[in-house]
Design a protein around this nucleic acid. Sequence first.
DNA 1: GCGGATAAGTAAAACGTTTGCACAACCAGA
DNA 2: TCTGGTTGTGCAAACGTTTTACTTATCCGC
Lengths: 341, 341
Amino acid sequence: MSVTIKDVAKKAGVSPSTVSRVIAEHPRISAKTSRKVREVMDELGYHPNMMAKSLVSKTTKTIGVILPRPAEELLLNFFFYEFMRGVMAQLTRAGYDLLMAGGNNEREELETVTRLVRGGRIDGLLLLYSRIADPIIAFLHKEKVPFVLIGRSLDYENVLSVDNDNVQAAYDATKHLIAQGQRRIGFVSGPTHLAMTQDRLAGYTKALAEAGLPFKQGWVVEGEFLLESGYRAMASIMSQPEPPTALVVIDDFVAFGVLKGLAELGFRVPQDVAIVSFNNIALAELTMPPITSVDIGTYQLGYTASQMLLSTILQEQIQPRQLIPHRLVIRESSLRTFFPV
Amino acid sequence: MSVTIKDVAKKAGVSPSTVSRVIAEHPRISAKTSRKVREVMDELGYHPNMMAKSLVSKTTKTIGVILPRPAEELLLNFFFYEFMRGVMAQLTRAGYDLLMAGGNNEREELETVTRLVRGGRIDGLLLLYSRIADPIIAFLHKEKVPFVLIGRSLDYENVLSVDNDNVQAAYDATKHLIAQGQRRIGFVSGPTHLAMTQDRLAGYTKALAEAGLPFKQGWVVEGEFLLESGYRAMASIMSQPEPPTALVVIDDFVAFGVLKGLAELGFRVPQDVAIVSFNNIALAELTMPPITSVDIGTYQLGYTASQMLLSTILQEQIQPRQLIPHRLVIRESSLRTFFPV
DNA sequence: GCGGATAAGTAAAACGTTTGCACAACCAGA
DNA sequence: TCTGGTTGTGCAAACGTTTTACTTATCCGC
């Protein structure tokens, strides 16, 4: 049906092996033959069949991304798109494609990974999050499949990973509130089984401790990466006899819920409650008021992770763990001195 | 290296063909043999090599999505993730994977598509937008590759597509403003080479005509899908001797810019200027005031598009064009009777 | 003008499946 | 007992590449 290497060979008057070598730019092909073959390739509109190629070369020029399951879906939300932009930029540059696959539960997810890896469909894998005792990581580790983790592994040493210094980031954010004169600072958290959440919580408590400020259990609310989660957190956290006057929020999207909740309860931001958050998605500057947020370099995260993965696949030497710098972007939501016009 | 069909065959004491037929659930395999072979497969941890399989079957159980280029990135942004959720839900259900690929310019993009299609890497394609005289559509059409378009083709009949009734949607939105007693209604538009923009504009003018309201050229501003676009539009549209008292805005993101622009010019929303918009992204309810927006069922768009694509691949009969219903979500930005507390 | 390197190319096996065809065994009906 | 159909399985070709091992042709120094 489609035009194959044999068709080209026949028309160019050479053998299939020669055509193959022309494509691979094998040194032992004369300039003349090469030119002739390329001419015929153009003429016939030849494109190599990737399946045949992969079958023998055992490489697919494709890397896989396993999508988080429904529960975590919204976690990545806008974050995800920005991350993927970074990934795609790198992959496009290197001539790789990206395969996305999912699964509805942990078993299916592992099954998908097995299928892709053992089925020879991908050369490497990008993991978007890390749970405790993740069976996927265990599997990949055992099979020696190249993979890069966003975040850090809680179970294995030496896993390739790209991360932020989340402890420091949360420390910086909390410090900023303290510098604004805040003394009663709460924390609206994410799922605690994620390394990221744990790290940010650690940075928060560290800053409090250093400043000699109280850590109150009631001022910390666990939740998910959902708008509703932030919204609901306000009901519980702000109904206390002495509610916090400032909040560190795990994620911008959750912060949107926090804004909504506070507005309904009649609290003004930042006059009554100041807010800092994480990720600095594009919408953070569009809310009322705009949200102070830690920019974690989402695009860079994706770009660097892919770069590491490609390097590993090509057997290049790399540093197993890279940190992307963060940056606190200060906007009105955290400024005590802010007075609206 | 990896365990193949031959290994299984040998261990089970049958021929490779038999193993293959067991996997394919061929009717003429005895229950006994089937059981035996499956046992061995489990025991050895066999997983079929997809490359070999695809090579002979000419099918990959993979569908492709071509990412929009930088210029259009923002257009899809908030859309994209929600859309992809719908796509993935459908594909996961059907056991298909998704291949994402990009290109930095029109030439590269077409090259990518050619490579994927001719290289036999995908069974079908999802196109996220439609331009006038799109060479990709021309190519796919010529090659008879199954594909589904989001929106509608301006060049070809009979292209499979999933769309909203954008004319009706804009008609509904405009009608709503008219029902609120508005008489001077403007339109903040997007790029006019997109079918979507043209359709929404048509619905707007239709509603005006029906109500006997004036259509003024100065009340319609063309722009892009950017916040700045809405912001700038206000400067030109509101400086006229008789500016509109209500606006239909092409997209929520643009509407944010409109809000910002109006605030700076000293107009209150909705008291001085009422607003309706499209897409109903999550943030639409978080602005001040919350924005009335037409929900276009983004998730459904993705889900249905994938469904159509899969049906086509399986040669099932389908309706070539499907419309996803829309729904006007009314919030404060459009209510004349709204008085802020 | 010969031996031996070197350059340029070919033939054929291999990659791991699927599938058309052949065939043996069995069974039912006459 | 024969005929003809059905059932279960195996053989080998095919899919479109890459790559190893081999064949020629050419060239060079002596």
